[in-house]
Every structure is written in C-alpha cells, then in structure tokens.
C-alpha cells in the first residue's frame, strides 16, 4: 500500500528546495515523510535535527520542531534534546561527511550509548554542498574535485561502523528501492534505541558527472543494479556491490530510559 506524503508535514512555502535537479535526496526525504506518516507519531513531538551539507538542509522543509545544527554535530544536539525531554521523538538527518567525517566521534558514542535517536544518513559518496570533494564513503578510484587523479583510499562502511559501535537497529537501502527504504526508516522510528538507516543516495551534479553517472535515471538504476540483498551474502560488505537489507535489529538497554531509572532510585 502506498502512503501519501501529508502536505501538513511539509513547509510548502519553503519550496522549491535547494537540491539540484536529479538529486536523490528528495527520494530519501519523501521516504522519511511517508515513514513518519505511517508511524502515527504525534507531529508536535517530533524534533527533526540535521547537520551541515545538502542533507542538512532537509530540516528546513519539514513541518516539525526543526533544528539545523553545526557541521558534524546533529547527534550531539539531538542527544541533549532527547535526554532533556524523553517524550520527544528525535529524528536526525545527516550526510556521509557530516556523520562519518567531522561528526564521527559523536556517531560512535551515540551508537555506543544506544540512545533512542532515529538517524537517517543520506550517503551520496561526496561533499555536494561545497562542490564535490571526497567524503569518507567515496569509492576507491573514483574522481572528485580533491581526487583529480582518482581516490586511493578504501571507503568507510557506515553501517558496519554503526554495528561495531553498538547501534541496535541498522539497515541500508538505496534510492533505487524507496519502498524498502521507507520500511526500514519506519522500523527505525519505532525501534527503541539507536537506529541508523543508511540511505544510499545520488549526487548527479558533483559525483555523477565526474564518474560516468551523469544521467539521474541511469544513476538510480545503477544503484539498484549494484544492490546485493543481505540474505545472499550474509555480510554488510561486498566488493561486488552495495549490500542492502536489515543488518541488525536487537533489543538492548536504552540510554535515556536507563538514566531516568537511575534518577528514580536516587531522587530525593
């Protein structure tokens, strides 16, 4: 069944958005909004936190309590919000650079605490906002404005890192399969604990045109064709393509709940 995006959840007056024609971020954002609609969470209780970069701009377009933070810091701000008011549903929209480079430390520690935040990382392999520089997830041998001779590093696997750090819900899907992406985001919203949904997105303007993926539709098709179901390889990582699926879905004590249980014990 297809869920419509409620216009009430969008700040229609703030459109058009700043994303380039052909950008995959709209597909990710619409998956988020449909998942929110399906989750039936009270909209007034949603705090939508984002960082800096293309993905970071998403908070301006959604009609919740919205916070556009500093580069790399959305998880730090979100941690404060959730711990100060556990009744709020805190959603974090971030990018691969924002989360895994400049915000890497907050990422590891938020996952380690298993704090109840739903994190959607728009992973497009590149710094789009600043004009196409390499990011932690830029694939080896690909071209960016700071790797004009090809990238010599292996990319970081964000989902793998989340699992290692202690996240209790981790899934990855590409914009080639938006309905599954929506499902994983919904699972993440309903999951109690730190959930990370790696949404593999596209950047036609800055990544695509330097790497033979200049056509938006071809780009989406490429991501879809490159997808390998988790069930097939039983590994989060494969050199043959992008492993997609639900990697981790477990219950563990959640930080804010544990904290206030402790408070109950010691409060005078």
């Amino acid at each position: 069944m297809y869920t419509e995006i409620s216009l009430d959840n969008l700040r229609v007056k703030k459109l058009p958005h700043i994303w380039c024609a052909g950008c995959g971020n709209g597909i990710v954002l619409s998956a988020i909004l449909r998942a929110i609609e399906r989750s039936k969470i009270d909209k007034d209780k949603i705090v939508f936190v984002s960082g800096i970069g293309c993905a970071g701009r998403s908070s301006g377009y959604v009609n919740f309590n919205t916070l556009h933070t500093l580069h790399g810091r959305p998880l730090a701000f979100a941690t404060g919000i959730k711990l100060a008011n556990p009744d709020l549903q805190v959603i974090v929209a971030t990018g691969d650079g924002d989360l895994a480079a400049i915000g890497g430390n907050h990422f590891i520690h938020a996952a380690k605490r298993n704090i109840d935040l739903s994190v959607i990382v728009f992973n497009n392999f590149v710094y789009g906002m600043t004009g196409g520089q390499l990011s932690p997830t830029t694939p080896e041998d690909s071209f960016t404005t700071t790797t004009p001779y090809g990238h010599i590093e292996e990319p970081m696997n964000i989902s793998y890192l989340a699992i290692a750090a202690g996240a209790t819900y981790v899934a990855r899907e590409t914009i080639g399969n938006p309905l599954m992406l929506e499902k994983y985001i919904l699972n993440g919203l309903l999951h109690k604990g730190f959930s990370l949904i790696e949404a593999v997105s596209s950047c036609v303007t800055e990544f695509g045109r330097r790497n033979n993926l200049g056509d938006p539709a071809e780009y989406v098709k490429f991501l879809k064709d490159k997808s390998i179901p988790f069930s097939k390889v039983n590994s989060v990582e494969s050199h043959d393509g992008i492993v997609v699926g639900e990697f981790v879905n477990i219950e563990k004590p959640e930080f804010v709940t544990s904290y206030y249980e402790l408070v109950k014990k010691v409060a005078k």
Binding site: F77, T79, G80, N105
Partner: peptide
C-alpha cells in the same frame, strides 16, 4: 559527552526543550 564539541551541542539541544 565524548568531547567538548559534543558537550556544547548537547546543552544547546537541551535548552531548546526548555
């Protein structure tokens, strides 16, 4: 928190909840 960048971020977030 994990560092001072996180500490200042967390208190700003907390303040926004009142």
């Amino acid at each position: 928190m994990e560092d001072e960048l996180g500490s200042i971020g967390a208190i700003i977030g907390a303040s926004l909840t009142g």
